[in-house]
Design a protein around this nucleic acid. Structure first.
Lengths: 342, 342
DNA sequence: CATTTTCTGATGCACGTGCCTCAAAACATT
DNA sequence: AATGTTTTGAGGCACGTGCATCAGAAAATG
């Protein structure tokens, strides 16, 4: 083992030697402490550049006794995507190099005041960051602002209305669905149905907006009537779908808008639909993948829950120590899944 | 700051207390050292489960003075994707939490004996792992085996023939291109041209295989003549393309097979092509993205070079310390890019 | 020049884990 | 009981960095 000439990354000790100062001064410069002459600061920074010094974050966090306590607030609905997401969060936390504890709590995301109360309660808990999956509303926004003032960053997670958040843009996801729908449906006129659990949710609205915009701009021959709402009920789904299909001999496509596509896809299996009907659904779950494989679905638009979970943890960490994130790693992609790239 | 009741992840000290043993014994159990009674081992393992203990890898690596020295051997061609990949590798190494040094070297990947020589030379260098992007051939395979025997893991990177490797499956990528081509081209018959730099490269062959298989199975009305080879030459590209287009009034699609799509796409811009020609290209580069945005290209099939770079580093690390990787994070996705999900 | 102020060096402990040594304890064998 | 063997405990140093403290040097001020 020729271990002698191994080039190890430089440490603060190497820096000190190269800059001709002591480790204490290097430390003062690195951590921006006062009382160092500009000339000395420059010498140290020059050495940093010369040696290509990179702070060993693992050692730094160890020394600081840094630990992170994060809380994830997720809606208490039981959809498949959410379950998978929860699994991924727990897994990502376990695999994290740092000492971190994550709490996953289910909240009543649709009651703004309940959410605000839950957020306020977190302030007293001494947690270092919150990932919140709930619609933004004035009470919630205020609660977030108060937490932020108290130094507890809150990251909107997966879905949020307005402002930045971790997750894909619903409008872009809808537009991608629309583009695929138009391309797959081929030239010529026809109609495309949009099936949604409920259109009151903001994410559904945004997807629909993106979908409509693309269809209007690029495929004007395709007509899109008002969305059919299922309220998650299999019987109702069957009923509205049958009625809509019966009335439209020119049906070319079906866009399953909601995140919970299981019920509509199950219903679809038992119906007598036009051959070559283009069906597009959201989120990779056991239900959508099965449907893609047996041909009920043509494409799935999704985001990787594992990536989401890891990304939000990295972002929370970066926020709590005032660092920048490694942007390239945090771009959540709007993925298109076909049979060939599952 | 209610910091008192913060629940910190347990340390080996907590483990020792819970199991009623000393830290030395905990250490023996954790690191599988001999000379501990089974009953004691069980007590410690029980405590690990009870407390949910997870080893602090950062501290462990710090203590071990663990450092990684990896070498990336990349082909010395100058294509855009490769440049981007190189950038990502350097960036990923800088952002790594561990102390690691990566060397990126350009090699003559198409000369099996030269590659084998380069690999052999690495054995004496005392490096901890190699990422190799070169076709597999008998001399190369032997060199890899020798390195492996010497305890230096070698990971085939991005493209490899046979065996597992880090990167997307070329056949699946070709199949995805084929599926999109068939769907986008619509019903009815027509022909689809395949344009490649050269068909001698194994990755081109595999893409073509996947592409053909899907077209034959799902879109038999589309004809795919023999691939047009450009040898990277703009004039030749223009010539073969013009000739092929002129002879085919039924042209519906064009599949740009090679990783270096810049030349064909540039040529395409100046040509008089059928409206609604479906063009599909590989790899996200400045050239392909520009073409997607101005409509010369309909879809890009790609893999994320940043993810590739980070993934191969994590895998090399895991291999050198005999750990398992976090599989979910290492699945390299075959991505489909449209205007709406760039 | 003397004095104050500003800057720097030397040193040490801490973080959680790995790894070592040495002695003490528990156990097994005669 | 005496002996040998295996198992355990106690303690310490190391890794690279953060964060103290204190004394000494250099610079600025009088």
């Amino acid at each position: 083992m020729p271990d002698a000439d191994r080039v190890l990354p430089p440490t603060t000790k190497d820096l000190a030697r190269a800059a001709g100062v002591s480790r204490a001064t290097v430390d003062r410069v690195l951590n921006g402490r006062l009382g160092v002459r500009q000339a000395t600061v420059d010498r140290v920074n020059q050495a940093i550049r010369d040696l290509g010094f990179v702070r060993n974050m693992a050692a730094a966090n160890l020394a600081k006794g840094r630990s992170y306590r994060f809380v994830h607030l997720l809606p208490s609905s039981g959809d498949l995507f959410l379950e998978e997401l929860e699994r991924c969060i727990a897994e990502a936390a376990r695999f994290s190099a740092d000492r971190l504890v994550t709490d996953i709590r289910r909240i009543d995301a649709n009651d703004p005041h309940a959410v605000a109360r839950d957020l306020a309660a977190l302030g007293a808990e001494g947690c270092d960051g919150v990932a919140l999956m709930a619609p933004r509303s004035p009470p919630v926004r205020d609660a977030i602002a108060r937490l932020d003032d108290a130094g507890v960053p809150v990251i909107p997670f997966v879905s949020s209305q307005g402002g930045s958040f971790v997750g894909i843009d619903d409008r872009a996801a809808g537009a991608t669905a629309g583009l695929l729908m138009g391309r797959f449906a081929g030239a010529g006129s026809g109609s495309v149905l949009v099936l949604s659990e409920t259109m009151t949710a903001q994410d559904s609205l945004n997807r629909r907006l993106g979908f409509d915009a693309i269809l209007a701009a690029r495929f004007p021959a395709l007509r899109v009537p008002a969305s059919l709402e299922t309220y998650g009920d299999p019987d109702r789904t069957r009923a509205v779908l049958s009625r809509a299909v019966a009335g439209r001999p020119d049906l070319r496509g079906l866009y399953v808008l909601s995140s919970e596509a299981r019920v509509p896809l199950d219903v679809l299996g038992g119906m007598d639909l036009p051959r070559d009907l283009v069906v597009i659904a959201h989120e990779r779950t056991a239900a959508t993948v099965a449907a893609l494989l047996d041909g009920r679905v043509s494409a799935i638009i999704t985001q990787d829950p594992g990536h989401l979970a890891r990304s939000v943890l990295r972002r929370l960490k970066a926020l709590s120590d005032g660092r920048e994130v490694f942007a390239a790693q945090e771009r959540i992609r709007t993925e298109i899944l076909l049979e060939t790239n599952l």
